[in-house]
Each structure stands twice: as structure tokens, then as C-alpha cells.
Amino acid sequence: MSSPLSHAFVPAALVCLLAALPASAQQARLKLDHLNALAAKASEVVEVTLDGQALAMGAKFLEKEPEARALVQGLTGIYVKVFEFEQPGAYTSADVEAIRSQLQAPGWSRIVQVKSRKDGDVGVYVLSDGKGGNAGMVIFVAEAKELVVVNIVGPIDLEKLSSLEGRMGIPKVGLGKGGAK
């Protein structure tokens, strides 16, 4: 039996199911589509999208590194966008603000912030899962001629995160014991 009512029920049920997901799972993935417009101005764009099966496959390459493998297996996604520009001023404060505003939502907290003329603005943000752990992370680097966003979705052991630096598109930003440089 098929009726307009039953057709309407399916999307409504889906919306309810999505609403029932932990808020952290929905918030941990940033909306970065607005950055796509920067591609036309950039001298180089690198995008890494690792989720679902791709992430599971990536974990297989870490067979002999159990610490890094365990870290990856708990994640649901790693998303990286890197834009390099020939001249400063290619991206606007609105581009940056669109990211920062998402990181001001409840649950997010900044654990590292570095502002310098040389290194630009570097921020490391963590999303609390409300149970003492975390549900996601963002590493955000805004330099004069470079914009980098690394969005890791899923629970992360910050102590072990440095084992993923330089892998799976995650740049080396000095996440070791000394914190971000």
C-alpha cells in the first residue's frame, strides 16, 4: 500500500533518526563547501577525503603501527583542505569567519592558539562528547598565502594523535608533547 502519507513518513522518520544522533556526531564535521570558491584563486589546492570504507582501508596500511591503527579505526572521517596562494589577501576574513563561527558552537573548545606574523594564525579545536572524551577535532591554519583546514571526525586520543602527523593528509604541525608550534 502506497500513499502520499507513507511517502511523507519516510523522510520524516529519517529526520527523526538524524535528530536522535548525538549532537557531537553532527557537529564534528565542519561545513567547508564555501571554501571551494577559493580554488579559482589558489595556485594549488589539495583535498583529502577519507571516510567510511576508505578510512578502513587506510587503517590496513598501518598494520604494524598498532597505536596509529587503533586511532584511525575509531574515526569516522578525515577531511583536509589546503589552499596555497601566490599573493597574500586571496581569502577574506569572511572565509575564515565562516569556519570560526562553527567552532564557536557549544561543545567546541580551542586547546591551542598561536598567532604570529611568521606563522599566521594556528588553532587546534576539540569537540567534547559530553562524557569526558572528545568527538572530533579541527586544526586550522590561516597564513598570508596558505589556508589549511584539517577536520577529524570521531573520538581522538590526543596523546596519540601525533602518530598520525604526516599521514593521511594530516600535516605536521607539532602535535607532540610540546603542543602545536
Partner: peptide, 10 residues
Amino acid sequence: RTPLVRVARK
């Protein structure tokens, strides 16, 4: 299918 990695240069 989504590209795992996409690189675009000017």
C-alpha cells in the same frame, strides 16, 4: 566514488 585525494594546480 569520491576522490580520496584531489590536487589542482593553477
